[in-house]
Computed example of a mutant assay.
Amino acid sequence: MRWAVLLAGLALAATGCEGGQAADGDLDLPDPVVETEVTTDIDYVALGDSFSAGPFIGTMRTDPTGCARSRDNYPAFLADWLDVASYTDVSCSAATTADLYERMLMFDGKTTRPQLDALSADTDLVTLGIGGNDFGIYDSLIRCQDGRLSTCPVAELEADARKVAGRVEQAVRRIGQRAPDADVYVVGYPDILPTEGTCAAVGASEEVLGPVTRVAGLLNRSLERGAAAAGATYVDMEAVSKGHDVCAKGRAWVNGPRFRAGIAAPFHPKINGMRAVAAEVFEQVTGDEPEVTDYAEPDPDAIVLNQP
């Protein structure tokens, strides 16, 4: 893709022409400056689960309501910073890789279309963040850290985490069939739990957390293998999120076990975590650092509403 050419337009600014002579000959007034909004011609589609959708971060979008999709999730920040021509976000909380191809039953009892239906031959950029809900992996990990190691099916979870690689590979290949000219970025999961030690926000011993974090790491390695096998770029959020888990207090990118309306769902990214993901993807796409904003404000004309 011609990212350097597309993004170079963002630096353009309209300037006034050479000043003209006033009628009375006394004043040399500049011609009026015409401001032109410059955007890239990137058509962007975001696919994924709740770690892309951002449940309960700020204001939820209503297209559809049942996906609990935030206006300040990382796809929204990325669309804003890239100044895309079009932006379609069909990420949906609780989605699995199967929901890329089939209608999904949402939290409100309604269904939404397969996520891959958002793709077309015009799509230039795709982000995909999915896999943690397959086989109930993340739900099991949360239950494990709430209980005892003896009741946690570690071997089964490790086997399931490895299976995700094939599902991600298949997903990327099918994305390529729908959007043959698109660059695809598979986005990994950030650290949720500490890799060393523990804290009150976790409520589990180091003995329990060790196997839990090992399974989470295996899941990310599966996403990386699946992406590589199908020719996509992997965005390693595990590496950059170290030291930003639930035990990091003010530096935490993820919420703890308590539901906090307007902040995040339990054990899900907060708005600062979403900004961090968007920044990492932006750097992968452009090779540059973004001008980070507090909130996501993609051009309203570029947002494609995603009715079920």
Score class of each variant (00 low, 15 high):
169 E>R: 14
113 R>I: 00
240 V>G: 01
231 G>H: 11
29 L>D: 01
70 S>C: 05
29 L>S: 07
272 N>P: 08
120 S>Y: 04
57 I>Y: 06
231 G>Q: 08
259 F>S: 08
38 V>C: 06
286 T>G: 00
177 Q>V: 15
4 A>L: 12
248 A>Y: 12
232 A>P: 13
85 A>C: 03
223 L>C: 02
57 I>T: 12
6 L>V: 10
305 L>D: 06
290 P>T: 06
151 T>I: 06
270 K>Y: 01
295 Y>Q: 11
301 D>Y: 14
220 N>K: 02
153 P>G: 04
262 G>L: 03
113 R>Q: 00
251 R>T: 10
133 N>L: 01
14 A>D: 09
152 C>M: 07
127 T>E: 00
93 S>W: 02
17 C>M: 14
238 E>L: 10
10 L>V: 08
50 S>F: 05
7 L>S: 02
158 E>Y: 05
2 R>D: 15
137 I>R: 02
135 F>C: 00
46 A>H: 08
257 P>A: 06
269 P>M: 09
98 A>K: 05
20 G>E: 11
1 M>Y: 14
283 E>K: 14
7 L>T: 12
229 A>M: 05
173 R>A: 11
183 D>A: 13
217 G>T: 14
55 P>C: 03
290 P>G: 02
50 S>D: 03
226 G>E: 00
208 V>T: 15
297 E>K: 14
193 L>K: 15
185 Y>Q: 01
137 I>V: 10
170 Q>H: 13
14 A>G: 15
139 D>Y: 12
57 I>Q: 06
157 L>A: 09
259 F>G: 05
238 E>M: 09
32 P>C: 12
132 G>T: 09
193 L>I: 14
25 G>S: 02
226 G>N: 05
112 T>C: 04
15 T>H: 13
9 G>L: 08
251 R>E: 09
17 C>T: 15
74 Y>M: 04
21 Q>T: 15
122 D>F: 08
272 N>T: 15
82 L>E: 04
216 A>C: 07
55 P>T: 11
28 D>F: 12
253 W>M: 00
144 C>D: 07
99 D>P: 09
120 S>P: 01
186 V>K: 07
114 P>Q: 01
242 K>M: 08
247 C>R: 05
51 F>R: 11
223 L>G: 05
128 L>N: 09
148 R>V: 11
215 V>W: 05
16 G>V: 14
295 Y>A: 05
85 A>P: 04
293 T>I: 10
117 D>P: 10
15 T>F: 14
218 L>W: 11
114 P>G: 01
279 A>Q: 08
124 D>L: 07
272 N>G: 04
116 L>G: 01
291 E>W: 08
300 P>S: 04
114 P>M: 00
107 F>H: 13
303 I>S: 11
11 A>P: 00
211 P>G: 09
193 L>R: 15
